[in-house]
Design a protein around this nucleic acid. Structure first.
Length: 566
RNA sequence: GCCCGCGUAGCUCAGUGGAUAGAGCGACUGGCUUCGAACCAGUAGGCCGUGGGUUCAAUUCCUGCCGCGGGCACCA
């Protein structure tokens, strides 16, 4: 956005001081009264030049003030150069910024793979799964909107001894009158929980479970069909929730998919001397002393493979079949060491890895009692969403006639689910999220409903303006301070999209949208829009429409919907 | 014990090598005969955990200590 200003400034510095590659960054000053843009480049280069920063700033300000983009430039404080842009330049910049509401149409050839979701088959989705789903989807949306070819790739846990346990439990205590197709995920979980209760009294159950899983692995028709049914039942349940969350999975390969793709990796590792024998006949990857990493277990003493083995097979498969330019794993911070080890192993194997990252997010900490899936006590994602929607519905009912929604039930869904997503996405993902109902379901202040309300308010103004089409930018040569302030806020939109995407930090976008809402609401309360006289009225309608469009686009990238009325 | 991360307002969190450190919630004061008050304007509340170092400039970078969290081969 301001790169050409930076280039211009760099040229000025080169001609004055012979520094061709000075690091010039134009940023927004702390207070808009100090100017539209500011740079501290004079302070940075002063040391090397042995001159006073203010003196350098003065000469840069004098030269840049000749630019057609710049109305005037001044030196402030210890040596900042603050500039005020011309109205023409500001409006031109607004057009560019506003264009970023549309997705970039051309696509990169090589895909960015975003690994996210990772639900477990035969278990209901827990509240703690929100992080990977919501953060992952927001990152996918940011890349896709800005022109990347993205594959959102899920890796469900659909394999392992737990399916043997499930079979044993179903065989003994399952309701055979019910068709397996009608069984719910909660039924499956109940069977799983019952198995663990009974297994404490009867040790033979564990042996039976292992035997049953072996039969599944060997392809026993009846058990295989049972397994497939549990997968189908779970998928159906997941799909319902994904529709509500606006999560879309492009590709899905579960653990079972990699079962026959691990042996070649194991052979390669052994042949290259990367995998070595560990304790008890196991196979491990030892790392160099200075890495400080403990060895990675590739194969257990009994010959069984592990999570790390499958992850390596998955990396190999993705590289070979999709040729990604990058792979991002949106996974809980608890797996930090695991990913370090897996990536280090890929390097030891000599694989040519695309850009890759464990895109960590913090743990969801619940203030209440510890949760356990085995005991079936964890908070379900469905419960969380339902509670959020219920609270939103209560508030809508309370407001009664003040509400102008076409469909109050849909509005409650939009607000409730949006509030939950917003709660996750408004925070730096690397930090733990302390779960708190009142904060998560807040409908005031820094929250999804505030954003939704601001959007509805802006749309309301536009409806009342009764325009034939989109408002048209009028020719203006003077801006009032309020208009300039809001305009400058709008200019940040594409910059924030890029920053948020490049850092894979959706909260940068969330925080910006919140600031945009604050700017608009402040604007709304301080100046008339519909009552203003032309051409100011037209300009303000353009700004209002732009705010509404950016809020809708930004929110949708964050998986959040916004209403036209509420 | 070793490795990693985090300590910012009463609470929950943004923030940045640079100009008086910002929000939300909570507390208090004001604003709907005027485009939607789920809003806005304002007040109070901070040795940015702590000692040292680098720098013209540190809450930000390095380092010692204290506190909290996570991880540390046969789970995923």
């Amino acid at each position: 956005m301001f790169t050409h200003l930076s280039t211009e400034t760099r040229q000025i510095i080169a001609s004055l001081y012979g520094l061709p590659d000075a690091d010039v960054a134009w940023v927004f000053p702390p207070d808009s009264s100090q100017g539209d843009l500011s740079t501290s480049v004079a302070l940075k280069i002063a040391g090397g030049l042995g001159k006073k920063p203010q003196e350098i700033a003065r000469s840069i300000a004098d030269a840049i003030s000749l630019s057609p983009s710049v109305e005037h430039a001044e030196v402030a404080g210890p040596g900042y150069v603050n500039i005020r842009l011309t109205v023409a330049r500001l409006l031109e910049a607004w057009k560019e910024a506003h264009a970023a509401i549309a997705p970039v149409s051309e696509r990169d050839e090589n895909p960015v793979i975003v690994d996210f979701c990772g639900p477990n088959i035969a278990k209901p989705l827990g509240a703690h799964h929100l992080g990977s789903h919501i953060i992952g989807q927001a990152i996918i949306n940011l890349y896709r909107h800005t022109g990347a070819h993205v594959i959102g790739w899920s890796y469900p846990g659909d394999w392992g001894t737990q399916f043997g346990k499930l079979w044993v439990a179903y065989d003994r205590w399952g309701d055979k009158k019910k068709s397996l197709k009608d069984v719910t995920v909660e039924d499956l979980l109940a069977l799983y929980v019952r198995f663990h209760e009974e297994a404490e009294k009867d040790a033979t159950l564990d042996d039976a479970a292992r035997a049953a899983f072996r039969k599944i692995e060997e392809g026993d028709a009846a058990l295989r069909s049972f397994w497939a049914d549990t997968v189908a039942v779970t998928k159906k349940d997941l799909d319902e929730i994904y529709v509500r969350l606006h999560v879309h999975i492009d590709r899905e390969t579960g653990e079972s998919f990699y079962e026959n793709r691990m042996q070649p990796i194991i052979e390669e590792g052994i042949a290259k001397g990367v995998f070595q024998e560990g304790e008890g006949g196991s196979l491990i990857v030892p790392f160099a002393e200075e890495t400080g990493m403990p060895p990675l277990l590739i194969r257990k003493g009994d010959g069984a493979t592990l999570y790390a083995t499958r992850d390596l097979a998955m990396i190999r498969y993705r590289i070979d079949t999709a040729h990604p330019s990058a792979m991002y794993y949106v996974v809980d911070v608890a797996q930090r060491l695991h990913f370090q080890q897996v990536f280090a192993t890929a390097a030891l194997l000599g694989w040519e890895m695309p850009e890759h990252e464990h895109t960590v997010f913090g743990r969801m900490r619940f203030s209440g009692a510890a949760m356990s899936t085995r005991k079936g006590t964890s908070l379900r994602m469905r419960q969380l969403l339902d509670e959020a929607v219920k609270r939103a519905g209560d508030i809508i009912t309370e407001r009664g006639d003040a509400i102008q929604a076409d469909d109050p039930k849909d509005l409650a869904e939009m607000m409730g689910v949006g509030a939950v997503a917003y709660g996750i996405l408004s925070q730096n993902r690397a930090m733990d999220i302390v779960f708190d109902w009142d904060r998560m379901l807040s409908f005031e202040g820094n929250s999804a409903p505030y954003l939704q309300y601001t959007h509805a308010r802006a749309r309301s103004v536009l409806r009342k303006a009764a325009l034939a089409g989109d408002p048209v930018l009028p020719a203006v040569d003077v801006l009032e301070p309020e208009d300039r302030k809001l305009l400058l806020m709008l200019l940040r939109f594409p910059i924030v999209l890029a920053e948020s995407r490049d850092a894979r930090m959706p909260h940068k976008l969330t925080n910006y949208l919140y600031a945009l809402c604050q700017s608009f609401n402040s604007f709304y309360n301080s100046v008339p829009i519909l009552q203003a006289t032309a051409p100011l009225r037209d300009l303000r309608l353009v700004l209002t429409a732009s705010v509404a469009d950016m809020l809708r686009t930004g929110a949708s990238l964050l998986t959040i919907r916004v209403p036209d009325r509420m």
